[in-house]
């Protein structure tokens, strides 16, 4: 099932067109990495998908029905959002903040209490729950935001730079929690980031946005196929070919190619210390695709 469908979205502020004809489809259970430089239009797209901004043209479908002013409330019920532009009340404690937002989501007080305690534990900020948010560190606020996004057991998660400001333990914890929810509850994730290494770790589908336009969209392999020199076999050893090379880098298409090359080298008397397939990584792919445009 397609949980998020965006069709030819356009959005301008004044005469500055920020989102230009952006289309994508995110099936249920996918983690969609929406990647692009600062000011590319990621946060604006996220707000469009949540009905906080109205597109100048184009259509949005969430969970099978078109987004309209009548069903925004229902869409919000099944969504969780983490973004730097949606903050907490500084003078309320972590628990009071969570309690307030939980009430706005219509969660009844008993469920809310147990759910909040569970999540405070999961995100490892239980000890800070009765301190005012003003006293939280950046990372603690981020954890609180993530836990708020999970409060209503969302079907769709919108994450705008979810791990910026988190320490390595924090990022690991957050990633594991997100992946666990995706596999357990089959939730769908819309993730904006410019940390490409991070995106490669968890995303299953990618969209590259630059200056408001979607310049590439698809799975990693689909994108890799667009730039042709994408898979190599690297071999280190002795006498690897006729000229006695100690290092080889050959373009291959698949595992079969690799094993054939390796057995040929050995047959011809070469000694192999190390052989590995080098995939182009997301970062290289990203810059390659951007340079093509």
């Amino acid at each position: 099932m397609e949980l998020i469908k965006a069709e030819s979205l356009c959005k301008s502020f004044g005469n500055h067109q920020v989102v230009k004809n952006v289309s994508f489809v995110i099936p249920q259970g996918e983690i969609f990495g929406f990647l692009g430089p600062n000011g590319a239009g990621k946060t604006t797209t996220l707000r469009l998908l949540n009905g906080l901004l109205f597109p100048d043209s184009g259509n949005i479908e969430i969970n099978g029905s078109p987004l309209s002013s009548e069903n925004i409330s229902n869409v919000h019920k099944i969504s969780g959002v983490v973004t730097d532009t949606a903050e907490f009340y500084d003078y309320l404690t972590g628990y009071e903040n969570i309690n307030f937002f939980g009430q706005l989501f219509g969660i009844d007080s008993e469920n809310l209490k147990s759910r909040a305690e569970y999540l405070f534990n999961e995100f490892d900020i239980f000890n800070a729950k009765d301190k005012i948010v003003k006293s939280y560190s950046t990372g603690m606020k981020k954890r609180l935001k993530l836990m708020r996004a999970f409060l209503n057991e969302p079907k769709i998660l919108y994450l705008d730079e979810p791990t910026s400001g988190l320490d390595p333990e924090g990022s690991k914890l957050v990633n594991e929690y997100i992946l666990k929810q995706v596999s357990k509850e089959n939730i769908t994730v819309f993730l904006c980031t410019h940390q490409l290494k991070y995106a490669q770790d968890i995303c299953s589908l990618y969209g590259f946005i630059d200056n408001g336009s979607m310049i590439a969209y698809g799975t990693f392999d689909e994108l890799r196929n667009k730039v042709d020199d994408s898979l190599y076999l690297e071999i280190k050893g002795k006498n690897l070919d006729n000229s006695g090379s100690q290092f080889l880098k050959l373009k291959i298409n698949n595992d079969n190619d690799a094993s054939e090359i390796i057995s040929t080298v050995i047959k011809n008397g070469g000694i192999i210390f190390e052989a590995k397939q080098i995939k182009i990584d997301l970062e290289q792919l990203y810059f390659k695709i951007r340079s093509l445009k």
Partner: peptide, 14 residues
């Protein structure tokens, strides 16, 4: 000023 309004706008309250 404190960017809390956007947090409220993401809830189901109209």
């Amino acid at each position: 000023e404190n960017k809390t309004i956007e947090s409220i706008l993401y809830t189901p309250v109209s």
